[in-house]
Design a binder for these strands. Structure first.
Length: 355
DNA sequence: GAAGCGTGGTC
DNA sequence: TGACCAAGCTT
């Protein structure tokens, strides 16, 4: 790791906080500086909930889920007592479903310990679903305790400020060191939100607003004239394209769905039965042989879906269940309930596409 | 420590 | 329109 750069720490802190006091966003889970200064205290449960939902997720996507969860489970005890399938159903559509499983596990651990979220970083890190970023964010936003948050926004801001020439994967320790050095121990909560807001609204991936940036005076990438060159991108690997045939079996106004294994892709969520997901296409003959029922299938929509590490094309076939036939696993679900079920987006598209 | 893990919006 | 992107964690 290179030696710490000669940065105008105090000036950076002050200009960022001045900017945040005037320009910072007002988000549902956030306490604005004037409210914090007036003694308003954050609800650690609400802060934690928002941070888990916001992991790799945009504010507009997460916000309705945040309100839905707070309304339905107002306290950590309520969430801890909830049925796991109901929580997964409420999470459906938000993605990264391990977060929901960890959310329940974390709520139960905190509830069992009296319902009080820990303040110490090591205690926060010991909870399921809480890593380095989230532990720091909870310390800062919920408890106003010293912490250095390093998320994608902060990584972008720091790599530009210091023109760090390697991909983030390589330079992460250096980024953390610089971020921690600048972090303001006087107003930790406001500072953490300020630096993330800076990345989200000013130091954006494309077309950053350097003219409106409180750190432009010190920014090396700005001086170079090409702030968008940072962070340096790692070469990306092509994602495979997979094929499957999905089997929608209806009985009147119900459809056969089953639960996926509790770990792994879409873990614990509902699915329509399907062939293996593989890179080779499926012939009609092979797909028919792999079907859960030997009936006359009708072809319906072809569903395209993109996951993090592969894309999938699922041809939907449908059939009416023969009288007396029952699935060996899973069960019948009313079509009118599709929005209340633990259906990931792919499977919701599959069900609707098979109609 | 590299790989696995979703989704929807944007340009 | 396909590539890129968004407040990461776990194994």
């Amino acid at each position: 790791m290179k030696p710490v750069r000669d940065l105008p720490i105090e000036k950076l802190r002050h200009s960022l906080l001045d900017w945040y006091d005037a320009e910072g966003r007002d988000l549902p889970w956030r306490i604005r500086p004037e409210a914090r200064a007036a003694g308003q205290i954050a609800d650690p449960y609400a802060v934690w909930l928002s941070e888990i939902m916001l992991q790799q997720t945009t504010v507009p996507h997460a916000t309705p889920y945040y309100f839905k969860f707070l309304d339905r489970w107002p306290s950590v005890h309520d969430l801890a007592a909830a049925d796991e399938d109901e929580v997964l159903a409420a999470w459906a559509g938000l993605g990264y479903y391990a977060r929901a499983r960890n959310l329940i596990a974390c709520a139960r651990a905190v509830s069992a310990a009296g319902g009080v979220f820990p303040e110490a970083e090591k205690d926060l890190l010991a909870l399921p679903g809480i890593g380095a970023y989230t532990a720091a964010a909870i310390r800062a936003a919920a408890f106003d305790l010293p912490a250095s948050v390093v998320d994608g926004n902060v990584e972008r801001v720091i790599t530009r400020l210091c023109t760090i020439p390697e991909p983030v994967k390589t330079s992460k320790p250096e980024i953390r060191q610089i971020a921690a050095e600048i972090a303001d121990p006087g107003r930790p909560g406001d500072y953490a939100q300020a630096i993330m807001d800076l990345g989200a609204t000013v130091c954006t991936p494309r077309k950053p607003d350097c003219a409106g940036c409180p750190w432009s005076f010190a920014c090396a990438a700005r001086a170079e004239g090409h702030p968008e060159a940072y962070p340096v991108k790692a070469p990306k690997v092509a994602k495979p394209h997979k094929h499957a045939v999905g089997f929608a079996v209806f009985r009147g106004e119900t459809i056969w769905l089953r639960k996926r294994p509790s770990r792994g892709l879409l873990g614990g969520m509902l699915e329509v039965p399907s062939t293996e997901w593989r890179t080779e296409k499926w012939s009609l003959t092979r797909a028919r042989a792999a079907a859960p029922l030997d009936v006359q299938w009708a072809k319906r929509a072809i569903i395209s879906h993109v996951f993090t590490h592969f894309s999938l094309e699922m041809a939907m076939w449908r059939a009416e269940a023969p009288t007396g036939w029952e699935p060996d696993e899973g069960g019948w679900h009313a079509l009118g309930d599709v929005d209340q079920l633990a259906l990931p987006s792919l499977m919701k598209k599959a069900v609707l596409g098979a109609l």
